[in-house]
């Protein structure tokens, strides 16, 4: 009926960007990132990874409404870095971690396969 198309959950609409940043005017080094067409998968992952950064003072996310596929991530850092830098560093470190995980998985799976074939 009037239900939105399911692909609107993951395809950006016309003129929409994946992430937008808004500086928090009340505090220095704080910003709210709005992620479009993303959910807890990325939200919680980034939140947790940002908190591992010692320069990040605050990091939390919320999904403003469950019917809209977006979330807001608020990041506050100390003077050493900026929220944007911290976010990009988090993304990059995660990509690196995942790359290593992928290599380890390939190796483990091969070993497991050999073990299975011989037994």
């Amino acid at each position: 009926m009037n239900a939105p198309d399911r692909f609107e959950l993951f395809l950006l609409g016309d003129g929409e960007t994946k992430v937008s940043m808004e500086q928090d005017t009340r505090q220095p080094n704080a910003a709210i990132f709005t992620f479009n067409k993303e959910d807890h998968t990325l939200g919680n992952l980034l939140r947790a990874t940002l908190l591992h950064n010692e320069h990040v003072v605050f990091s939390a996310y919320k999904v403003p409404h469950p019917l809209f596929p977006k979330f807001e991530l608020r990041v506050q850092t100390d003077e050493e870095t900026t929220p944007k830098e911290a976010l990009l560093a988090a993304c990059q470190s995660l990509i690196g971690d995942l790359q290593m995980l992928s290599q380890k998985l390939t190796r483990e799976w091969e070993l497991n396969k050999i073990a299975r074939d011989t037994s």
């Binding site: 960007t17 990009l88 990059q92 995660l94 995942l98 790359q99 995980l101």
Partner: peptide, 18 residues
């Protein structure tokens, strides 16, 4: 492997936007 790849792509999309 695909899960890892698509998670990386998600993160890369964030970097790309900036």
């Amino acid at each position: 492997q695909q899960g890892i790849k698509y998670l990386q792509e998600k993160l890369a999309a964030v970097i790309e936007t900036f």
